[in-house]
């Protein structure tokens, strides 16, 4: 090994060691755990059980509901984040007076940690003190207060608490999406838009024929990141509703946490973790496959 190679490995080593200790080892440990019985309240029975834990969690209606909700939360939040970010990135990419102020405003949610943001929104969405309710009532838009985080009516998989948390997740996720898309937009040569102008393209044609296809690599990375984060999302759902009411806002990460640390069923929690891992793996494989396809082209 040449001296340069040794130096390179040395430089990478700390990150690699940290990833191994804090990422890979716990993952393998919990995967192993998911195939064993590991009940802290009943330690006599601990041993290999094969796929029993997976069968058990999949037979639990609450868990299946949680998987569905995790998928709905993730897809809907990502859809709105990407659509709104595409629009806002175009707006702040344009040159106009007050752009700096608007940029700062749009990026503000980024500086608020998710737990703090959740705490703020709990107050903003509290049925009794919510300024949103107050405003809507005053304006005559609604007749009674909306119970943003506690209403248990459902429409298919959707409920008001779910929508509320999705809205907060969108609000919190927007800045990073905008930064990605803005960087992507700024890397598109202006001459392509001019060529499209000369070719007779209007605003929408330019968006669909120039902007969107050229943002594809950026959007792929963004979607992969958001899906993986989304399937494992914890803070907002846990802090704002703890998965309630009636499990309507529960997601896999929160379910896993509750199963492990409230009911002390680490084996079932590990199995749920295994399912999250499978879901994120699908996204990762899809992403790598799409990227490889682009390279092949």
């Amino acid at each position: 090994m040449s001296e340069k190679n040794v130096f390179c490995y040395l430089m990478v080593a700390p990150a690699l060691v940290i990833t191994l200790i804090l990422g890979i080892y716990p993952m393998i440990r919990s995967m192993v755990m998911s195939f064993r019985s590991y009940d802290l309240l009943n330690q006599d029975k601990n041993g290999w059980v094969g796929l029993d834990n997976y069968r058990q969690v999949m037979a639990d209606d609450r868990f299946v509901q949680t998987i569905n909700q995790t998928v709905v939360f993730t897809f809907v939040a990502i859809f709105f984040v990407v659509v709104i970010a595409l629009f806002l990135a175009q707006v702040i990419n344009a040159e106009f007076r007050g752009r700096a102020v608007l940029r700062t405003l749009i990026f503000t949610p980024w500086f608020v940690p998710p737990v703090v943001a959740s705490a703020i929104w709990i107050w903003l969405l509290n049925a009794n003190v919510s300024p949103i309710n107050h405003f809507l009532l005053e304006a005559g838009v609604i007749e009674r207060k909306i119970r943003f985080l506690t209403d248990s009516d459902t429409w298919g998989p959707f409920s008001i608490p779910m929508m509320s948390i999705i809205a907060v997740r969108v609000w919190n996720g927007l800045p990073i999406a905008i930064v990605f898309i803005l960087a992507g937009l700024q890397s598109i040569p202006k001459s392509l838009y001019e060529a499209a102008d000369m070719d007779g393209a209007g605003t929408f044609s330019k968006f669909f024929h120039v902007t969107l296809p050229l943002l594809r690599p950026v959007l792929l990375v963004l979607l992969a990141l958001f899906f993986m984060n989304g399937f494992g999302h914890f803070e907002m759902n846990y802090v704002m509703t703890g998965g309630g009411p009636r499990n309507l806002t529960n997601v896999l990460a929160v379910w896993t946490y509750q199963e492990g640390f409230q009911f002390l069923r680490f084996d079932r929690a590990a199995a749920a973790g295994g399912i999250v891992l499978m879901m994120t793996s699908v996204v990762a494989v899809l992403y790598i496959w799409l990227q490889a396809k682009d390279v092949r082209k």
């Binding site: 001459s191 001019e194 060529a195 499209a196 296809p213």
Partner: peptide, 15 residues
């Protein structure tokens, strides 16, 4: 787009 003019750019500006 309403001028019916075609232009070749220095950078070619191909999509």
């Amino acid at each position: 787009r309403k001028r019916d003019i075609a232009m070749v750019f220095q950078s070619y500006a191909l999509y």
